[in-house]
Amino acid sequence: MNKVEVTGLVKRFGGGRTLFRRPIPAVHAVRDLGFRVRPGEILGIVGESGCGKSTLAKMLVGLEYPTDGEIRFDGEPLAAAGHKPNLKVLSRRVQYIFQDPNSSLNPRKTIREILSAPLKHLRGMNAEERERRLAELMEHVNLRPEFLDRYPHEFSGGQAQRIGIARALAAEPDILILDEPVSALDVSVQAQVLNLLKRLREEFQLTYLFISHDLGVVRNFCDRVAVMYFGRIVEEAGVDDLFSRPIHPYTRRLLDSVPGVETRVLPPESDAVELPDPYHPPQGCAFAPRCPNARDDCRTSDPELADHRPEHRAACYHPLEHP
């Protein structure tokens, strides 16, 4: 089924007390976050830098452990607070494609060695099976078999990212976490890699979680979008509905601040605008100091993510109005 369910996810860095019982400040990176990814779907995760997108991605693949909450795949809990995930099982279900394709590949190993590792350690293939599978993987990502004996530095950024995709496919996963997978590539190469990812999704019945700052790419690549602000999802909807009729004021500002999304341009925010302190989360809505619709109730309690339209949820007491 390839379904992902995240419930009450929290991640704090630091905290506790020193040897002399003095409190250690904690950074609240992810705060009570929950969502579902349907089988075969591409869910886009967008938001400003520092909103918790990459921390979320790392928890989904076991690189970070949740402070609280639970992550389930097809109903099976694979990561939860207080329990270390089985990384071998998790790696066979979920794979990560990194932002910088060149730095994610070991420069001392050939492509053959890089792609053989998951085939040997995760799939348990013998030498003959690995050779056959290596040829298949190179064909899937449109690279020539003779490239297997070269080193990562001999490839362009687009080719290196294709190798990264092949490495992820080698584990035969159900879900791919794509963390800014095309942001380091030229625009023309971005289109090639995105088209490749779309083809592979259909071919292998994959589910994608796509993290990006590029709203133009998100609009054309994703099925649904979740907007994060200060560690929480503040709006979630189908891509067309969210881009044409956003509900949360933060989503509106996010869309209006990016050139090329065909939206009006808002005046810049004041330099005196108050941003949330990750060491001391505000009592109410974290976006309230920047929000033109904020009222007293926004500053006293944090709104829950709730249905405002069919298949469209937002965490806002005073949503935007649409004709």
Results as ranks from 00 to 15, higher is better:
Val225Asn: 11
Val225Ile: 15
Val225Cys: 10
Val225Asp: 06
Ala226Pro: 00
Ala226Asp: 09
Val227Ser: 02
Val227Asp: 00
Val227Glu: 02
Met228Trp: 10
Met228Gly: 06
Met228Phe: 09
Met228Thr: 03
Met228Val: 03
Tyr229Ala: 03
Tyr229Gly: 01
Tyr229Ser: 04
Tyr229Met: 02
Tyr229Phe: 14
Tyr229Ile: 04
Tyr229Leu: 10
Phe230Ala: 15
Phe230Pro: 01
Phe230Asp: 02
Phe230Glu: 00
Gly231Arg: 13
Gly231Leu: 08
Gly231Ser: 12
Arg232Trp: 07
Ile233Met: 11
Ile233Gln: 02
Ile233Asn: 04
Val234Ser: 03
Val234Arg: 05
Glu235Arg: 03
Glu235Tyr: 08
Glu235Val: 01
Glu235Ser: 05
Glu236Thr: 03
Glu236Ser: 08
Ala237Tyr: 10
Ala237Leu: 11
Gly238Val: 12
Gly238Gln: 02
Gly238His: 09
Gly238Asn: 11
Val239Gln: 12
Val239Met: 12
Asp240Cys: 03
Asp240Tyr: 09
Asp241Ser: 15
Asp241Lys: 13
Leu242Pro: 00
Leu242Cys: 08
Leu242Glu: 05
Leu242Thr: 03
Leu242Gln: 07
Phe243Tyr: 14
Phe243Asp: 08
Phe243His: 05
Ser244Tyr: 14
Ser244Trp: 11
Ser244Phe: 10
Ser244Asn: 14
Arg245Ala: 14
Pro246Cys: 15
Pro246Phe: 12
Pro246Asp: 13
Pro246Gln: 15
Pro246Tyr: 13
Pro246Met: 15
Ile247Trp: 09
Ile247Ser: 06
Ile247Cys: 09
Ile247Pro: 02
His248Ser: 05
His248Phe: 08
Pro249Ser: 06
Pro249Phe: 04
Tyr250Trp: 07
Thr251Val: 02
Thr251Leu: 04
Thr251Lys: 03
Thr251Trp: 06
Thr251His: 07
Thr251Ile: 00
Arg252Asp: 10
Arg252Met: 01
Arg252Leu: 06
Arg253His: 01
Arg253Gln: 06
Leu254Ser: 01
Asp256Glu: 15
Asp256Trp: 01
Asp256Gln: 14
Asp256Thr: 06
Ser257Met: 11
Ser257Asn: 08
Ser257Asp: 00
Ser257Leu: 03
Ser257Pro: 10
Val258Ala: 12
Val258Asn: 10
Val258His: 06
Val258Gln: 13
Pro259Arg: 02
Gly260Cys: 09
Gly260Ser: 14
Val261Phe: 02
Val261Thr: 12
Glu262Ser: 14
Glu262Lys: 13
Glu262Gln: 13
Glu262Ile: 00
Thr263Lys: 15
Thr263Asp: 03
Thr263Leu: 01
Thr263Cys: 03
Thr263His: 13
Thr263Gly: 04
Thr263Met: 00
Arg264Thr: 08
Arg264Ala: 13
Arg264Gly: 14
Val265Asp: 03
Val265His: 05
Val265Met: 12
Leu266Met: 13
Leu266Val: 01
Pro267Tyr: 11
Pro267Lys: 14
Pro267Asn: 09
Pro267Asp: 12
Pro268Gln: 10
Pro268Tyr: 05
Pro268Arg: 06
Pro268Phe: 07
Glu269Phe: 14
Glu269Ile: 15
Glu269Ser: 11
Glu269Trp: 11
Ser270Cys: 06
